[in-house]
Write a protein that binds this DNA or RNA. Structure first.
Length: 875
RNA sequence: GGGGGAUUAGCUCAGUUGGCUAGAGCGUUUGACUGGCAGUCAAGAGGUCACCGGUUCGAUUCCGGUAUUCUCCA
């Protein structure tokens, strides 16, 4: 069975059981500080479980891209070494929100596996939660009874809290779970060791394929469990593993999910998969990582040096490293594999096809910068080896520096060391790494106290901020948060006019007036759909009714920038083309920043054209049409621009400025009509990654100030040129004159020193064939340098000592001809050190040329005398 | 968010006790050779050594700050 059929069968099966088939969410997580990427099918329903969002469909099924780079069974460094762990994988799942429960979940799972997929029942094992004394829970008899209808009792195993009790986090919804495992070993193996002994033992052929979670409790902050009024089902089945089972192969990488990728890589590298374990690992790593990186970029997460972007960069670099080391790829190669992946998955995940160009460019660019990093690391490594030819062990501190500062992977350092018979001091390396980690942790240390709940089980916060900037409200809960000795309070209200940071628009600030106390709201953020007001003071009387007031001025300026962003987005698509897509956006009260896909630097003309279009739309004073709760399909028909990597519900909000110009899905706040924006001015255009440009711009007062400042500067410049009509030509002429004058001066000085050199030569004294000049002259010290160099080239055996006086300071210069220097008889540095004390100074230089400076010009004569006697006695 | 590094010619980079007249390769201009292209040779142009301040007689070099950028950690 082809993997695409497996996926389709799964979805169709649950559709036949009245499930709504939904789209998986993009893997990049935006509003959950505890999570960077979607790592389980249930992530997109977290708000539903937490009660922060209403249930749209009671029964749902989907396939969800998941990305895991760390966790109990999945360390990035291990992926590729075995045959069944991945960074990116698909999770097939079905859900019930307060609808069916254990009985049906179990029955359907069994039906799908054994009747649709025709898996042999005798190879299946299931596990059931055995109970936990501490939590006061007994064995999950309900699940066990259900299973007994389908499977022999000796294939039902009991599991502890560790394997069979699922929790979302420290607190929140949780419950027992029941896993389905499969034994894929040969008959012979099975008779040797019975399958039930290998379940949950990390055996590569006795593996978990499906986990059914029965959410029925809520873990409270005090650690106690309470029973949920609504019970839910949450299941997840690893798609790649299922494919392995149904295609009768022993490794996920042998399924048609990975095989085309592996074959392509093998062909490119000129090797055969299955011949050399190290090369096989490399190919597995590359095929796995390509999938992760490609989808992350398609969903809007570009590689970068912080946060989620850094995770993506690390994954990609790991793939490059394996290709570089084991498959001898010296040039970017991963981007070349992308078309294979696109061909495989474009029907299921269309974003990978529509974003293909960008993904390819970004990957290629990342690859080449990393290869550059690698070659610089190799250079530094060689330098180290040359400087420490005798050491048997490479310094751990050096290896760490290479890694930490230059991004050179430690295992490459070790590999290169081994090749020349050296070891790396890993202990010191680890020490360095630990020190780095603890420094970072300390800097990011944040202590979060428990929520103080004032209104238990409150419904989701009502947002009133689209229409009102002020309202009365109650505190639902609040808690203290301390970071770097800075204490803040997070406050949740039952209703609020405060906009929480989202869609690139910053959170509102303002005040909460409560029982005569004023709490300053410095920011408003969203965590799992819950708007949180960050407040500087602790509420003294938290149960009182409060008055929430948003900072109107800031909100107004922010709206200007946000609406201008929409107008600019549309203008960019008109001017540059429809390949322009939003890749990021930041809007606050001071400016707007917009990242978008485009392949080249914008020309000045293009920027000007965009500015003109936006300003024209501002002058048209188009009123903003806002439509709430529009079904997504209808919004798309309206021509609304949706963003890749953005998660949209079934009902969306549509912002329109002229239906023929700008229609966008957006949750932000906007101007009532474009005229309020006043004026729009781009202040910078730059590149932030391959194929991605960034524009920053001002609107309204800020744009006005910007223009005025520039005009004022212009006026001042014009003033400097008095009557000049065109200051540009005046400046050009000035620069031209300046450079020709400097050249002339240089020429004069050359001539002057040449002349001076000739004159000085006339006063030169001789001892045999040995010539010397010792003089005090009036010349600029920099010119003296030139003069000495001229003089010392005039005779084979020559010493020049010159002294100058300037601004009450004394300078000495000593020069030797090259020939004389090579005899070693004299040394300019030595001479200068002997004579510089006379002028109360010091100096130095090379054997053939030295300079000194001092504070006492009255000592010049003595210094020269000393120099002369030194020369005479030495000759 | 925290640590470390980098910033020198159009590009890639050298430049260690602070004083060498700031260099190399590629590119570029001109000339010569060649039937043309490619090429070879010769000559030349191109630098506020990121910016601001400090130490020093003297800073591309040492110290501090700013900007940009790379990199590791969170």
């Amino acid at each position: 069975m082809k993997s695409s059929e497996i996926r389709r069968s799964f979805l169709e099966f649950f559709k036949s059981k009245n499930h709504q088939i939904v789209q998986g969410s993009p893997i990049v997580v935006k509003d959950d500080p505890t999570l960077m990427f979607i790592n389980a099918g249930m992530n997109q329903f977290k708000d539903v479980f937490l009660g922060n969002a209403p249930v749209k469909f009671p029964r749902v099924a989907d396939t969800q891209k998941c990305l895991r780079v760390s966790g109990k069974h999945n360390d990035l460094e291990e992926v590729g070494h075995d045959t069944y762990h991945h960074t990116l994988f698909e999770m097939l799942g079905n859900w019930s929100f307060g609808d069916y429960f254990k009985e049906e979940a179990i029955a359907w799972a069994w039906e799908l596996l054994t009747e649709v997929f025709k898996i042999d029942k005798k190879n299946l094992y299931v596990t059931v939660f055995s109970g936990d004394e501490q939590d006061g829970l007994s064995m999950d008899a309900e699940a066990k009874e259900s299973w007994k209808k389908y499977i022999r009792e000796d294939h039902i195993l009991l599991g502890s809290k560790k394997d069979n009790f699922w929790e979302m986090g420290e607190t929140g919804p949780c419950g027992p779970c029941s896993e389905i495992h499969i034994d894929l070993r040969s008959e012979e193996e099975k008779t040797k060791i019975p399958g039930h002994e290998l379940v949950n033992r990390d055996h590569p052929l006795v593996i978990e394929i499906w986990n059914l979670v029965f959410i029925e409790f809520n873990r409270q902050a005090n650690g106690k469990l309470s029973v949920l009024p609504q019970k839910h089902i949450d299941t997840g089945m690893g798609f790649e593993r299922l494919a392995m089972v149904l295609q009768g192969v022993k490794s996920n990488y042998d399924t048609d999910v990975f095989k085309p990728l592996i074959n392509f890589i093998a062909k490119m590298a000129g090797v055969t998969y299955g011949q050399d374990e190290k090369k096989d690992i490399a190919m597995r790593v590359i095929s796995d990582h390509l999938r992760a990186v490609a989808f992350a970029i398609a969903d809007g997460q570009l590689p970068s040096n912080t946060g989620a972007g850094y995770v993506i960069r690390r994954i990609l670099r790991r793939a490059v490293r394996y290709g570089f080391t084991f498959l001898d790829f010296q040039e970017p190669f991963i981007y070349k594999i992308l078309p294979v992946l696109v061909e495989q998955l474009k029907d299921v995940f269309p974003e990978i096809e529509s974003q293909q160009n960008l993904v390819e460019m970004v990957i290629k660019e990342e690859e080449s910068t990393f290869l550059r990093t690698l070659s610089q690391g190799v250079k530094r490594f060689d330098q180290y080896i040359n400087m420490n030819p005798d050491s048997k062990v490479i310094d751990g501190d050096f290896a760490f520096e290479l890694f930490d500062t230059f991004g050179f992977p430690i295992d490459l350092t070790r590999l290169m060391a081994r090749e020349i018979g050296l070891d790396v001091n890993m202990e010191d390396f680890q020490k360095g790494l630990e020190a780095q980690k603890s420094r970072s942790r300390k800097a990011a240390e944040k202590t979060t106290d428990d929520w103080i709940e004032l209104i238990p089980n409150a419904p989701a916060t009502k947002f009133l901020g689209y229409n009102r900037l002020e309202c009365e409200a109650q505190i639902v809960k609040y808690r203290q948060v301390t970071q770097k000795k800075n204490t803040m309070y997070e406050v949740v209200l039952d209703r609020t006019p405060f906009y929480a940071e989202s869609g690139g628009q910053v959170g509102d600030s303002g005040v909460l007036e409560i029982a005569g106390q004023v709490l300053h709201v410095v920011d408003t953020r969203k965590e799992n759909n819950l708007p949180i007001h960050i407040v500087a003071e602790e509420p003294k009387n938290p149960t009182a009714t409060l008055l929430a007031k948003v900072d109107m001025e800031k909100r107004r300026l922010t709206a200007n920038n946000h609406s201008a962003t929409h107008l600019m987005h549309a203008a960019l698509r008109q001017v540059l083309g429809t390949h322009v897509e939003q890749k990021g956006s930041m809007v606050d009260s001071e400016r707007l920043r917009f990242d978008f896909s485009h392949f080249a630097k914008m020309t000045d003309e293009e920027i000007r054209e965009v500015e003109k279009k936006v300003n024209a739309k501002i002058r048209e004073n188009i009123s903003c049409q806002i439509k709430e709760n529009v079904p997504i399909e209808e919004a798309k028909k309206m021509g609304a621009m949706a963003l890749f990597g953005e998660k949209y519900g079934e009902q969306v909000r549509v912002i329109t400025f002229d239906p023929g110009y700008s229609v966008e899905l957006c949750g932000g706040t906007h101007v009532p009509a474009t005229g309020q924006i006043g004026f729009f001015k781009v202040i910078s255009e730059s590149g932030i990654a391959a194929g991605v440009r960034r524009i920053e711009a001002y609107t309204a007062d800020a744009a006005e100030t910007y223009i005025f400042e520039h005009l004022d500067l212009m006026t001042e410049i014009q003033g400097q040129f008095k009557g000049a009509v065109n200051p540009l030509t005046a400046v050009k002429n000035l620069i031209q004159d300046n450079s020709s004058l400097s050249k002339e001066i240089e020429q004069f000085q050359k001539e002057k020193t040449h002349q001076l050199a000739g004159e000085l030569m006339k006063t030169a004294k001789k001892i045999g064939d040995f010539t010397y000049v010792v003089r005090k002259i009036a010349i600029d010290p920099n010119q003296a340098k030139n003069l000495v160099h001229q003089l010392r080239a005039m005779e084979d055996h020559m010493i020049v000592v010159l002294a100058m006086e300037e601004d009450g300071k004394a300078n000495l210069v000593v020069g030797l001809s090259d020939e004389l220097t090579s005899t070693g008889k004299f040394n300019a540095g030595n001479i200068i050190r002997k004579i510089s004390p006379f002028i109360k100074g010091g100096g130095g230089g090379q054997p053939h040329f030295a300079m000194a400076g001092g504070k006492d010009p009255s000592g010049i004569n003595e210094a020269l005398k000393a120099a002369e006697s030194e020369i005479v006695s030495g000759s």
